[in-house]
Write a protein that binds this DNA or RNA. Structure first.
Lengths: 379, 379
DNA sequence: CTGTTAGCGCATTCAC
DNA sequence: GTGAATGCGCTAACAG
């Protein structure tokens, strides 16, 4: 009969040779079978305290860790959730990822993140790769749920999934805001301030359902106010080129008194572009964004925007797929996150305002003639 | 001898029953061995066009995809790189992730991202989990390379790795900027503008080597200019609570004319806090940041800062571990990314400046008395 | 050119 | 309580 010590000598095949220790090494060192090691380390099944301790000691001395890929192959679960968003660099998605991460981690899952750079092929490629990696679930923000091959693929596979930011309850569970309704609030805000000539600024309008929904809500509400549809200002270049193109775009539309930007990053970029043109925000041009990212409140003037809760969307999306992984029934297929219009210094009364009915003229309204500069230069 | 069709009937065990098809199903459908399927799908080894096509057809009809976990178990490689950063929500890390992602993807690798929330235990936990997942390599930004258990663990395991933002060439390959030298530039900039009473603002100073290196470079250079060491303003709360604590912190130190913030996010938050206190930036308080994130250029006044290239750091870190994965020799153990001081509206001449030597007094310097409010309210 | 075989590390059934 | 045996999906030898 072999003592534990003797066996310990006999093994020595795997551990030191190459890479990390395997469960066999631990079993050999502890003088037991691999099944026991598995049971101890997983806390499954009964074990005597004696062996329990021996296994733990052995594992510690080898600083052994069960291999996830071995387990995954066996259990067909990876404890991993895939996530693809248009851009990690956009704070709005970064915040959502934060929420996702927290929820996933709390449930013992890791996140594999992929960025699609707002393109359809990278979107599909990312999902394909993720499927190959056998993620247990998927959280996506796609360019357009109605036509997304990526989403189709996931649905075919029957993998637990949820959309973030996208709103398409009939296609997939989603965590989003009601973009159209939110955009209507923006229209109201502009109209309240006497604006009539408005533009809608979007990045790659054609490939973002969110942009379109916001545009439509905005336009529809404007028409209800008896105004014309907003002018669509589209930038479909690389986000990096924004600084180049935005100023000329704004310059071509100087007659506009207000611009609703499809998201806060764009709105901020527009504010910067306006400065380039010596247009003063909000006096010469009012700007409203969408999302409510933190930096919007740090700039001067502060950015008027639709305040949403990206982190909550991430959390909600995560909960949806986590619930599905636990085989729970998902109650609502659609998590509508709260939102509200958040006033800010970037939106003020229109200088061309002609309305005499002072009913809504409660906000501080600068006289038609303005001082040459609001702050930086002295006169 | 069985025809392909007959065999196709015989299988039917796995495919439709449960989950996805396996390589066996494809082999059966194509009427060949699994090895051939593997060869065709991987483009390894020779295959006749005939079987090649049959396999492809079979795979397509089952919409089969090779399982990464099967492959990983066999090859002991996961084509996956783990990454842990303090916070996904900080744009500086988001940008770095962007660079990382691009490089990793180009090399056929995925990224598993984890946030440590600037805490040591989450840092260690994240790395442990990542090791369990058998990532091929690791890219980290740790709180302090000298003492990080997480980094120790990785080094013990002998896994290819690289640090981002951290600068500790003796411990691990790293992609960073020379924080101390960069901070000296900031000191010069402040002194050039006649500032003498300066503060250094940091978040969790004790647990960030980057903060400390910047503080030291800043302080050392100030002393070379014959000035006192900067006052250390430390915020060690949750980043979310910044808005609460920062104003009172600044209020306690009204005598300071300039503040060097450890990073741009903090600097932006400080600018916001200053507004809360009706302190005008830069006239009442000059602020300089560090990193050079894009939003810094979108705010008004623009943020003076040290311009770095986070994306390049991500790329460099990725290249380092990718090279190691290809068994290439890493040339330099340390990739110093370029940086430069970037002037901005948030830093102006000190109003208390007593120097008569008007040599550098080129910047527009407002008179000691200012209008009551900069912009938003009318008087 | 192609099929058979042997594990990779693990969880799990089934005896003991 | 515990161990031996099986197979998850795949790639790499090795025969043929």
């Amino acid at each position: 009969m072999l003592t534990a010590d003797t066996r310990a000598v006999i093994k020595s095949t795997n551990t030191s040779d190459r890479g990390r220790a395997s469960i066999k090494d631990v079993a050999a060192l502890a003088g037991c079978g691999i099944a026991t090691v598995s049971r101890v380390l997983n806390g499954s099944g009964p074990t005597s305290v004696a062996t329990h301790d021996r296994v733990l000691a052995a594992a510690a001395s080898l600083d052994f860790q069960l291999s996830d890929i071995g387990r995954s192959l066996r259990t067909q679960r990876t404890r991993t959730i895939g996530c693809v968003v248009p851009s990690i660099a956009n704070p709005v998605f970064a915040q959502a990822l934060q929420g996702l991460q927290r929820a996933a981690r709390a449930a013992g899952h890791q996140l594999i993140v992929s960025g699609s750079n707002y393109t359809l092929d990278q979107e599909l490629e990312a999902v394909t790769t993720l499927l190959g990696k056998q993620v247990d679930g998927l959280v996506l923000t796609v360019s357009d749920p109605e036509t997304s091959q990526a989403l189709d693929l996931v649905r075919e596979r029957g993998l637990p999934h949820a959309l973030m930011f996208n709103h398409a309850p009939s296609l997939a569970p989603c965590a989003s805001v009601d973009n159209a309704s939110a955009a209507r609030l923006v229209a109201d805000a502009f109209v309240d301030q006497g604006h009539r000539l408005l533009g809608f600024l979007a990045l790659r309008f054609g490939s973002s359902d969110r942009s379109r929904q916001r545009f439509e809500g905005f336009g529809a509400r404007l028409q209800e106010h008896g105004l014309e549809a907003p002018v669509l200002l589209e930038v479909d270049d690389e986000p990096a080129h924004l600084a180049d193109h935005l100023p000329s775009l704004l310059d071509e539309h100087r007659y506009l008194t207000g611009i609703f930007a499809s998201n806060d990053m764009l709105a901020l970029a527009a504010m910067q572009a306006a400065r380039t043109l010596s247009l003063r925000v909000p006096y010469d041009l009012s700007i409203v964004g969408f999302d409510g990212i933190a930096i919007g409140q740090m700039v001067e003037p502060t950015l008027a925007t639709v305040q949403t809760d990206p982190e909550a969307m991430g959390t909600a999306a995560a909960e949806t797929v986590l619930a599905a992984l636990r085989n729970e029934q998902v109650s609502s297929s659609c998590d509508q996150t709260r939102f509200h219009f958040r006033p800010g210094g970037s939106l003020s009364r229109c200088r061309d305002d002609q309305t005499d009915s002072g009913e809504v003229a409660a906000s501080p309204l600068p006289s038609p003639t303005h001082p040459r500069e609001p702050s930086l230069k002295k006169d």
